[in-house]
Computed example of a mutant assay.
Amino acid sequence: MTPEQLRAFCLDFDAAVEEFPFGPRTSVFKVGGRMFALGALDARPLTVNLKCEPENAVRLRAEHPDAVVPGYHMNKRHWNTVTVSGLPAALVRELIEDSYDLVVAGLPRAERPRRDRP
Rank of each mutant, 00 (worst) to 15 (best):
K51Q: 12
R61I: 06
F9N: 00
G71I: 05
L87D: 02
S27L: 10
M35D: 05
T26E: 13
V84E: 04
F29G: 00
G106V: 08
F20D: 04
L95G: 00
E55V: 15
L38A: 00
F36P: 00
V31S: 06
V17W: 00
L60Q: 08
A57S: 09
Y72V: 06
P118E: 12
R59Q: 11
E18N: 11
R109M: 12
L38T: 01
E94H: 11
R117N: 09
L46T: 05
Q5W: 03
G71L: 10
V103A: 07
E18C: 12
P113Q: 04
V69L: 15
S99H: 15
L38M: 04
N80F: 04
H64Q: 02
G39A: 06
L46M: 04
D98F: 13
E18R: 05
L50D: 01
L107P: 06
G71Q: 06
A67F: 14
R34K: 15
G106I: 06
P45G: 08
L41M: 13
F13G: 04
P113G: 01
E63H: 05
V28R: 01
V103H: 07
V103E: 06
M74T: 08
N80W: 09
P108I: 06
S99R: 10
N80T: 00
V31A: 01
A90M: 14
V84L: 11
F20R: 15
G71D: 12
N80H: 09
F9K: 12
E4S: 12
R93K: 12
A15S: 15
G33I: 09
N80C: 07
A110E: 13
L95M: 14
S99V: 06
V58Y: 10
A62G: 09
V68I: 15
R25F: 02
P108V: 12
H78K: 03
G33M: 03
P21N: 13
A62R: 14
V48K: 10
R93E: 12
H64I: 07
L102D: 09
R61V: 03
T47V: 12
L91A: 02
D98P: 11
P88C: 04
V103I: 12
V104G: 03
A15P: 05
V84C: 00
S85A: 14
N49A: 13
V104M: 00
V92A: 08
F22W: 10
G39M: 11
R61T: 04
L38V: 01
D42C: 02
C52S: 07
A62P: 11
L6P: 14
P118R: 14
R112F: 05
E4A: 15
F29M: 02
V17K: 11
L60W: 11
M74I: 07
G33Y: 02
A15D: 15
M35C: 01
D42I: 04
D66V: 05
V31K: 00
D14E: 14
P108L: 04
V84N: 00
P45M: 08
S85K: 11
